[in-house]
Design a protein around this nucleic acid. Structure first.
Length: 297
DNA sequence: AATTAGTCCAACCGCGAGTTT
DNA sequence: GAAACTCGCGGTTGGACTAAT
């Protein structure tokens, strides 16, 4: 997925990962308490220096992870509800494996938790429903196929963890192929976004709690910039533009979460392509879906 | 009861990107 | 402008637990 740059190939390993004497493995209640006390007093951030100041023999990365995924007061524990599950599926369909973005839309859930839940539950659930968990397109069983390519595609699609891929191999036909090879996950979300921003009369202000949530996620903007979403992040230093884009994107996401969005999206992109998709239900025009009024509702 | 296989999830790792020096 | 530093992300691992044999 990531292509190592020349600089990263030669980059020395960060000391925090290799430093001798640092503790690893599961956290003890004492360590948790030290971390919680420190963060509640000093706030999040400065993870590099935090362990020393907090009296922990952990690397900063480990502290950050522990705080973010477990100790943060906002972290919701317990079972993921059917509503949350449904939301995860929809967001994954839209965003792919961008777990932090998905988590950002589900209050109290962490990216790690959602990623784990996806890999252990939802991907299998989708497969059992005949849906490819990677592309959200229907699976087609093709017992006659012996193409190595088909094996590769299928294995790739389910290889989010090595164990899961082998498990799937036990339960599912590896000759299963993904139909519609034209499908490019990123394209599906980029194109409607581009349209929405072109046609959008920016209100210039944040009008929903979700927008606040998104405003803090400049990583999101970076991701879309990477994917050539130049319109969305025309100038990342322009706060007003970013605020606007965040609002637009948040609004757009909200509209996508409504299950009637996807049909229109598919038609918009593929023209005459009529894919079966259980998530696609209505033919509401895209321009109507990206209605700024929604933000006030 | 012992062993093996499968499941789950907290934690680790490598990397890219942004920021600071 | 380059190098070093820092943060955050997604993929992966490993160990605890449970179910099946």
């Amino acid at each position: 997925m990531r292509i190592p740059s020349a600089s990263s190939r030669t980059k020395v390993v960060t000391p925090c990962c290799t430093k001798i004497g640092l503790k690893r493995g599961p956290w003890t209640p004492e360590e948790d308490e030290l971390l919680m006390n420190y963060v509640s007093k000093e706030g999040e951030g400065r993870w590099r220096t935090l362990p020393k100041k907090a009296g922990l023999f952990r690397c900063g990365k480990s502290c950050r992870l522990r705080w973010m995924n477990y100790l943060r007061p906002s972290v919701k524990r317990g079972h993921i509800s059917p509503d949350e599950e449904d939301l995860i599926v929809r967001l994954h369909r839209l965003l792919g494996n961008r777990w932090s973005l998905i988590a950002g839309r589900i209050p109290g859930r962490t990216d790690n938790e959602i990623k784990n839940y996806w890999n252990t539950h939802l991907s299998k659930k989708l497969i059992s429903q005949g849906i490819d968990p990677r592309t959200h397109k229907p699976l087609i069983l093709n017992p006659n196929s012996s193409s190595d390519d088909n094996h590769i595609i299928t294995k790739k699609a389910y290889s989010s963890s090595p164990s899961s891929s082998s498990k799937l191999a036990n339960n599912y036909d590896l000759n299963t192929i993904i139909p519609n090879p034209i499908y490019i996950p990123n394209f599906q979300m980029k194109e409607p976004l581009r349209s929405s921003i072109n046609n959008y009369n920016c209100p210039g202000e944040i009008t929903s709690p979700d927008d606040y949530q998104y405003q803090s996620s400049n990583v999101m903007l970076a991701n879309y910039h990477d994917d050539n979403m130049n319109i969305l992040v025309h100038d990342e230093r322009d706060d007003e533009m970013n605020c606007c884009a965040d609002g637009v994107f948040s609004s757009f996401l909200n509209s996508l979460i409504n299950e009637d969005m996807f049909n229109c999206q598919n038609q918009h992109i593929n023209g005459t392509l009529q894919d079966f998709d259980p998530f696609m239900a209505s033919s509401t025009p895209l321009s109507d879906q990206i209605n700024p009024k929604r933000m006030d509702e």
